[in-house]
Every structure is written in structure tokens, then in C-alpha cells.
Simulated scan of single mutants.
Amino acid sequence: MSAVREALDSVRLVDHHCHGTVTADLGREAFESLITEGEAWPGISPFDSPVGVAVRRHCAPLLGLPRHAPAGEYLARRSDLGWREVQRRFLRAAGTDVFCVDTGYAPERITTPGDIAEAARGTAYEVVRLEGVAESVRAAGAEPDAYADAFRAAALDAVRRPGVVAVKSVAAYRTGFGLDPARPSDAEVAGAARHWLVRGGRLDDPVLVRHLLWTAVDLGLPLQLHTGFGDNDIRLHRADPALLTDWLRLTAGTIPVLLLHCWPYQRQAAYLAAVFEHVYLDVGLTLHYVGPARAGAVLAEALEITPFRKLLYSSDAYGVPEFHHLGALAFRQGLAGLLQERVDADELALPDALRIARWTGRDNALRVYRLRSDGPEDD
């Protein structure tokens, strides 16, 4: 084992963006639906994809099965152990002791931040999804002229809950990033709210999404933004983080902006992190979908020009705890291989490589979110 890999394996990771896992034993159809951003189409199983192969290769041994166990055997063993034991094994194997959990997406019953912390023997914090806050304001019957104040008040209440450390937006799904970057006027917000409050549905009005992003700036907490890869609800070309350039220029000097996932736009995200002080990125979600075999290639592109204090680790695990383990494994293996290769080529000193490994896996997130593993910083 290389010196860098040994060091990375010893780092207790900070997963700065993840979700809960389903609190039920899963049959094949349900499990397959959770290991793909697409669907389990007739004759095409998600097990026959890079992520499905990675599950069978790297997760099967934690269930007491041989590597590459057939899907049927894997699922039978998972069922025999029960979801609680499966969750415990994968969360502890991930070597993660701090989790920032997005609680705003729960089409199934999933574990809470407290559940995750208990299973992992770690610490968990909450990330508030702002679109959910806006939709709760609409459901409460806000009047158009009062919408802006009502949303701000509800958002402030949400972020003041104990354990909340950040907010998140899924504007990439709702409108994409090709928005007017300017803060909308009160009249614009009231006019847009008038239409949306009557029409209903999810928040997808461009003016109100702009208002949401600017409200996030006012809240003062780090803002996570989904970018790039997602399910077929997204229009990928509109999720390119480079489209945020003008908005980032206007918000310079305010809050940290965390670009999540990024693939296939990790190079665009790296550019933004290189030229804007308040921009950071990760390649979470991507890593377990490409698997450990290709994680190094994605990380290499993300780190071509990114300052080393700007890359964070996340799993973006959702639904199945295998993704907590796979994300961590792919990150450690991919980053260790990349850094060790540079050390061997004398392009990087070993002490620098070890610092970068710890920064990326842990310290950068602690710094951005002002966290300690046992609680928020006091200063």
C-alpha cells in the first residue's frame, strides 16, 4: 500500500453532502431503483452497469460474500441481515465520522441525521433545502405581496434549528442556471408569487428561484448547489456551473458556495473555484457511479487547476448505505492513486500530498462549515 493511500485510509472523512437511507428491507426492484439515476428498464438491470458492478465487487465482502457475488445472492444476503445491520456495516466501513445531511428529499421513509450518526458512531448535521421551505410557505397560504417576507421568515426559522449548518438549492433541476443574476425587485417577486401561488406545484418560477438564491446569501450560511449529473428530471446543459459566473461575480465576498457533484462539468467547476474566493466543489455522487476504477480520472480533472483547499469530499449517498461506503472507497482510492503518481514523478513532495489528502477528505469541510467533529466552532 502506498504512503498516501495509507494516510488517506486513516483520515476520518467529513461527508459534507449526503442523504438518509431507506428504513426497510428491499426487494430486487426497489433496490435496483435506488442504484440508478435512470430506471430499471425491461431486460436492462442496473446491476449490469458500472455502479452495479462496483456494488457486487466492493460491497459484497462486507456482507460476508465473495467479491463479484451474483446479484441474487447479494440481495438474499442483504435481506437475511436486515436493513439496520446492513446500514451499520456500510456506514462504519466508510470511515466517516461527520455527515452533513440534506433532509429535503424523502420520497421514501429514510433515516434521519440522528439515525445516521448513531449507526456510524459519528456526528451528523442538517442541510436545509430551500425549495422545500418555499413550497411550505405556499402551502400555508401566503399572500403574493407577503411572500418574500414570509419566505425569509420561514427560512430563518429553519436555519435556526439546532444542528443546521448549511442550505441547499436544486435550482439546476427547477430552472437551470441561465438566470438573470441580479437580485429581483420586490415588485418582480410579488408578481411572480401571484402566478405561482395560484398555479401551485413545485417552485420553478425563474424570478422566485433568483429570489431564493439571493435569500440564501442573506441567511449567511454556506450554500450547496446541485450541478451537473442527476436523474432525467434535469436538463444537463442547463446545470453547467459556468452559467453561474455572473451571479458568482455579484455575490463575491458573501457566503461560501459549494458546487456539488459537477460531472461532466468538473473542469468548469474547477475554473470557478480557481477564480472566485467563495467557490468550492466536490465530485460526490459521481464517484460511486463511476466506481473506484474511474474515480481517479474524475478527480484528476477536478484537481487540474483547483486550489487544494477548495475540493471537498461528499458521497451524496441516498437510499442505500452501500453508497456511503462506495463513495468513501472511490474517493480514497482515486485520490491516493492520483497523489501518489505525482509523488513518484517528483511533481509533488510527499508531505504536500499528505496535507492535500487530509485537507480534501476532512479539513476543508470543517473549515468551510465551521465545524468540529463534536460540534460547531465557537469563534
Rank of each mutant, 00 (worst) to 15 (best):
G132R: 06
D102T: 08
T227N: 04
A293H: 14
E85L: 11
L223H: 05
S2Y: 10
N232C: 02
L281V: 05
R267I: 10
A239D: 02
A153C: 01
A146P: 01
D205T: 08
G361Q: 04
A172H: 00
G176N: 03
R138C: 05
L338H: 14
T96A: 10
R332W: 12
D25G: 10
R332D: 07
E143M: 12
A365G: 04
L335D: 08
R92H: 06
T215V: 05
L285D: 03
C100G: 05
P206W: 05
R5C: 11
R362I: 04
L287P: 02
N232M: 10
A345H: 11
A30C: 08
P144H: 09
G95D: 06
G114F: 03
T123M: 04
V275M: 07
A336W: 09
V128T: 12
D115N: 07
R367G: 04
R267D: 13
P66S: 08
A3L: 15
A7R: 15
R183L: 09
S10D: 15
Y369F: 15
Y173C: 00
D149F: 09
L285Y: 05
P144V: 11
P61Q: 09
L208K: 05
W83D: 07
V11H: 10
Y369A: 01
G296V: 12
H211L: 01
E73L: 14
A69L: 06
G64C: 11
L34V: 06
T360Q: 11
T36H: 14
A365I: 03
R238F: 11
A365S: 14
H211M: 06
V11F: 09
A94G: 13
A153M: 00
R28D: 15
R129Y: 11
D48P: 05
H16Y: 13
L221E: 02
L130Y: 04
V51D: 07
R152W: 02
V275Y: 06
L285W: 10
D186C: 08
E301P: 06
L354Q: 12
R160A: 13
A182W: 06
V86H: 02
A158M: 01
R370W: 00
M1H: 14
T123N: 02
G284C: 02
D346V: 13
A93R: 10
V217R: 14
R89Y: 09
L299N: 04
L287E: 04
I255F: 03
L338C: 03
E6Q: 15
L221V: 14
S33Y: 09
L26P: 08
G375T: 11
E6K: 15
R332I: 07
E347F: 08
L311T: 02
H325A: 12
C262H: 08
C262R: 01
L287S: 11
A24K: 14
V55E: 00
L91P: 01
